[in-house]
Amino acid sequence: MARQIILSFALLSIIHHGYALMCYQCAPSMPGCNEFNWRGMGYLGSSCPESDDVCVKLIERKGANIQITRSCLSTLEAIRTDVPADRYEGCRPASLDIRLGNYVNNSIKEYDIHRNYFDETTWCFCFLDHRCNGSSSISVPMIGIVTVAIWSTFKIMFSN
C-alpha cells in the first residue's frame, strides 16, 4: 500500500503541467516559422504560462511579404496593444490603438512607433486543441498519451 502511495505522488509530481495548453512558439526571425509542417520537424510546442491561455497565430502583411508569429496570448499581451477584444476561436483584424505613440516626436520611421508599417495585421485565436496555432490541423491528444504512459507504468510495476 505504501508503495502505491509513493508511486501515485511520483506520477502526480511529473505531470504538474498536465492541464496547460501547448502552443507552437516562434518569431518571424526563426527559420520555419511561416507556413511549415511542424509535426514533420518533431517540435511539439511549449506549454503556456497561464491556465486559461489561448494559442495565437499573428499574421502581418506588407505587400507580398508575410510575417507569422506563433505564441500564447499571455506572452503577446505584454508587448502588443492591438489585440482584438473578441478572443474566441477564429481570425480577426487587429484593433487600432489611437493612444500608441501619441506624445512621441520621432523622425526615424524604422522605429515604427505608431505600428503602421504593415498593411494588414490579423490575429488568429484557438484554444480547443493543443498546438492548434500551427499550419496543419493534425494533432495528437495529450490526454491519450498521458493515459497510455500511466497505464503502461502500472502494468510494468504490478505485473509480478
Rank of each mutant, 00 (worst) to 15 (best):
N34P: 00
S139Q: 08
E120H: 10
A94R: 07
C132E: 06
F154R: 07
I145G: 10
E35G: 06
W123P: 05
E60H: 02
A149F: 14
F125G: 02
D129R: 13
R131G: 03
D119K: 09
I156T: 13
N105D: 14
R39Y: 08
S95W: 00
V56H: 01
V140N: 07
I79L: 03
P93K: 12
I59E: 11
G90H: 07
C26A: 05
S71K: 01
W123A: 09
Y24C: 05
E77N: 10
S95L: 09
C23Y: 04
S51G: 06
Y19R: 14
F118A: 12
I113E: 09
F158E: 15
L21C: 06
N160G: 08
N65F: 01
F127M: 07
Q4F: 14
S8I: 12
V140Y: 10
L100W: 04
M22G: 07
G144K: 03
S47D: 12
Y111C: 00
S47E: 11
I66F: 01
S137V: 09
C55M: 05
L76Q: 05
L100P: 01
V104Q: 09
Y24M: 03
A78W: 04
Q67D: 11
A27S: 15
D129H: 10
N133A: 03
M1I: 13
D97F: 03
C91N: 04
